[in-house]
């Protein structure tokens, strides 16, 4: 159903490092799940609109009032690595 190439491509899109054995297992499991879920393709749905939310809401707005934001030191508290007043990240490849 999905091959090794697609599995690796999707893992890359999802930013997930998979080991070789995880990749093989993932390919089998995803194929089995996709085989099951493709029953949604049996139905003729050409005239049926999609549902994104079951309880529809429109134009939800609130007053545009400034409120205090999170203090910098609190925002950085849980970061694995901090540089000055910011989050430290590895260099872009």
């Amino acid at each position: 159903m999905i091959d090794d190439h697609v599995t690796r491509h999707v893992a890359r899109l999802a930013r997930l490092e998979l080991t070789e054995s995880e990749t093989v297992q993932m390919q089998h499991e995803l194929s089995a799940i996709l085989e099951y879920v493709q029953q949604v393709q049996e139905l003729d749905l050409a005239t049926v609109p999609p549902t994104t939310h079951a309880i529809p809401l429109e134009n939800v707005v609130r007053e545009d009032v400034p409120t205090p934001s999170v203090p910098v030191e609190l925002a950085l508290r849980e970061a694995p690595e901090v540089h000055g007043d910011g989050f430290a990240v590895p260099r872009m490849g």
Binding site: V37, V40, L43, P49, P50, T51
Partner: peptide, 12 residues
């Protein structure tokens, strides 16, 4: 084929 179709079944 997958996500779009599922959202339509959801309507049903």
């Amino acid at each position: 084929a997958y996500y779009g179709q599922a959202q339509r079944v959801r309507t049903l």
